[in-house]
C-alpha cells in the first residue's frame, strides 16, 4: 500500500475541510481526487506532504507515518502545488538544478526519469522560467518534482489553466511515469480527466462520495440517462425542470442530461410534453452516464 489514509479530519475554525476521509492507494497506481474547488483536495495534499497536521486520524505515505516519519516522507515524495512554484527569475536549468541540489542529488543522476519531459523544454533551458508558456512551466514544475526520483508523486490540479493540447500531453506523461512504478495521486476539477485514472475518489465538502474505478463508478449510475436537445436550450431546461416526473436535469455539452423518477419511462411521453410546451427540433436519445453525471447524482444526496 503506497498511500494509506485512515479517518483523517481537518477543520479550519468552524469549516470542516476534511471530514473522516479514508483512502488507500496501491503501489504504482494513478489515483485521481475528483471534486470541485473547495472540496478539500489541497488540504489533503498538504497533510500527505507533511505540510499540515490533521486534527484526527492517521496516514502513511510510502510506508512512513506522516507525523512520526515526516522527514523520511520528504525524501520519498514529489509535490507539485496548484500554483507552479518556480523561480521566475531563474532559468529553466537553474530551477531544475536548484531542486536537484536541495534534494541532495544532481540532474545527471536521475536524468532518465525526466528525460521524456525535459527534452521538450531543453531547447529553452537558458530562458527564465517567468518567460515560459503555461504548458512549458507545467513541464518544468513536473521535472522539478521528479528530479529526486520520488516513490510517490502528488500533483495538485496540475492541469488547471493549461491548454487542452498540453493537458493531453501531460496525462500521457503521467501514464509513462506510472509505468516506471511511481505512485501518483492527482487532483483535478475536470471530470474528463478522471476517466484516465486507474481509480478515483469523488470528493465534495470534505467528504468522500465514492471510490472506485471510473468504469465502475459510471456503471453504478442508478438510472437510465437521456440526451435531450431542442432549438432553445434555455427554454428546454426550464420546461424539463417544470416536468412533474423529472429526477435530474443537467446541461452537458450540447445536450441536457435528463433522468426520470419512474422506472418505466417512455421518451415519447416527454417528447409530447415538450412539443406541447412549444419546443421544436426535439431530440431525445438514451446515452451512457459519465463521471460528471455520477458526481452530480452523488452530490445531490
Amino acid at each position: 500500500m503506497s498511500i494509506r489514509i485512515d479517518h483523517i479530519s481537518k477543520s479550519y475554525g468552524k469549516v470542516n475541510a476534511l471530514d473522516d476521509i479514508s483512502i488507500q492507494v496501491h503501489q504504482g497506481e494513478l489515483f485521481g481526487l475528483i471534486g470541485p474547488d473547495g472540496a478539500g483536495k489541497t488540504t489533503l495534499f498538504r497533510i500527505l506532504t507533511t505540510l499540515l497536521l490533521p486534527d484526527q486520524g492517521s496516514a502513511s505515505v510510502a510506508g512512513y507515518d506522516i507525523i512520526a516519519d515526516f522527514k523520511a516522507i520528504r525524501k520519498q515524495v514529489g509535490y507539485m502545488p496548484g500554483r507552479f512554484s518556480l523561480y521566475q527569475d531563474l532559468t529553466v536549468e537553474e530551477n531544475l538544478r536548484f531542486f536537484a541540489t536541495i534534494f541532495g542529488t544532481t540532474i545527471a543522476e536521475n536524468y532518465d526519469l525526466i528525460r521524456d519531459i525535459y527534452v521538450q523544454i531543453e531547447p529553452f533551458k537558458n530562458r527564465r522560467a517567468g518567460k515560459l508558456s503555461g504548458g512549458m512551466k507545467q513541464k518544468l514544475a513536473l521535472s522539478c518534482a521528479l528530479i529526486h526520483k520520488p516513490k510517490v508523486l502528488f500533483l495538485d490540479e496540475p492541469t488547471t489553466g493549461v491548454d487542452p493540447v498540453s493537458r493531453k500531453e501531460f496525462w500521457e506523461m503521467l501514464k509513462r511515469l506510472q509505468d516506471k512504478g511511481i505512485t501518483i495521486l492527482v487532483s483535478t476539477p475536470y471530470m474528463d480527466e478522471a476517466a484516465l485514472c486507474d481509480r478515483i475518489a469523488l470528493i465534495q465538502d470534505g467528504r468522500i462520495l465514492e471510490i472506485d474505478t471510473p468504469k465502475a463508478i459510471v456503471e453504478h449510475y442508478p438510472k437510465p440517462i437521456f440526451d435531450v436537445g431542442a432549438h432553445n436550450t434555455y427554454l428546454l431546461i426550464e420546461k424539463l425542470n417544470a416536468y412533474a416526473h423529472k429526477h435530474s436535469v443537467f446541461p452537458f455539452g450540447e445536450y441536457i442530461h435528463y433522468t426520470d423518477q419512474r422506472d418505466g419511462f417512455d421518451p415519447l411521453e416527454l417528447r409530447a410534453y415538450l412539443k406541447k410546451e412549444g419546443l421544436q427540433n426535439i431530440h431525445i436519445e438514451r446515452t451512457k452516464a459519465t463521471i460528471e453525471d455520477t458526481f452530480m447524482e452523488l452530490a445531490k444526496q
Binding site: R74, V77, M80, S85, I102
Partner: peptide, 18 residues
C-alpha cells in the same frame, strides 16, 4: 508569496541550511 517556499518545505532540506 510566489509559492516556492511550500515546495522547498516538502524537500528534506535542513532548516539551518536553508
Amino acid at each position: 508569496e510566489i509559492g516556492t517556499l511550500e515546495q522547498i518545505n516538502v524537500t528534506p532540506i535542513k532548516k539551518h541550511h536553508f
